[in-house]
Design a protein around this nucleic acid. Sequence first.
DNA 1: TCCGTCACTGCAACCGGATTGCAAAGTGAC
DNA 2: GTCACTTTGCAATCCGGTTGCAGTGACGGA
Lengths: 152, 152
Amino acid sequence: MHSEFEFNRTMANGTIEQQLQDHGIHPTAARILVLQKLSELTHPVSMTELETELETMDKSTIFRTLNVLLEHHAIHSFEDGSGSVKYEICRCESTVCRVENRHIHFYCEECNRTFCIDDVKIPVVELPDGYEIESINYTVKGLCPECSGRKA
Amino acid sequence: MHSEFEFNRTMANGTIEQQLQDHGIHPTAARILVLQKLSELTHPVSMTELETELETMDKSTIFRTLNVLLEHHAIHSFEDGSGSVKYEICRCESTVCRVENRHIHFYCEECNRTFCIDDVKIPVVELPDGYEIESINYTVKGLCPECSGRKA
DNA sequence: TCCGTCACTGCAACCGGATTGCAAAGTGAC
DNA sequence: GTCACTTTGCAATCCGGTTGCAGTGACGGA
């Protein structure tokens, strides 16, 4: 275990550890650090970006950690069209996050950044009989305000 | 084209070659074959699946062909969460396909198939000022009728 | 008709994100 | 402490996507 991991548990952000336990996840150092980082960030990140942020942690550990967090619905993942999957913390109050509470995302084709449009929730459609909805990905592609302004 | 009557798309319809020309694409053998195949298929396919279908064609040719078709809006692409991009022919009447005319997709996490829900159009949301919409990906994940029935 | 140019295609190599096998390190129960 | 199980790091691998390059073909002009 590297130095970054050797933090004082009592000093650690208790709520992160609590969040993990609330989702039924055994709180290990790696899981706390990953969830901590995701809770700090205001935009969705790829595994590669997390690798950069958490320099001492191996990418396979990050990969498996993200999967554990996903399985227990502590985080969400989605594809924005950039080619790599993006992850973001689930900010739902309850441990189960309902589809209609999730917000949409915007991917800027110019600057390649992904934005959370927190104010806009995913419109939920009615599907033909038999389809069971687990999740919905609503991602808009285009130009972000910064880039559309620069082009105008 | 001698009379304005022949500009009527529904009448000019017919050949794949015509479709290519309508989109301003020089109709080569590869392009005809790819578009032909996409028009036959009733579900979106990945590049790899196309590679299997069109055994004699090199994947780089398929790749570049798909890009040409995409640029000229003869086909659409989207990510369903399977990890690979899916392609489908654009069945719009006009050469420009408006966002609100596009249908949603369903990805079954059990059988890994992707379905077009032709009857359900993408709900278009209002974005904050400055965002310019180019396209929208609305993909639902869950269980398809076949798989949800089998599980029930 | 021949020639030059440019678009198109196939092959092979490459890239990068995602994933896995395995061994070492850590953790909890006893 | 010991044992069983979980977690982590390292290295290798997989695979979809992408590119460089050379060969082929289509087309227009001399």
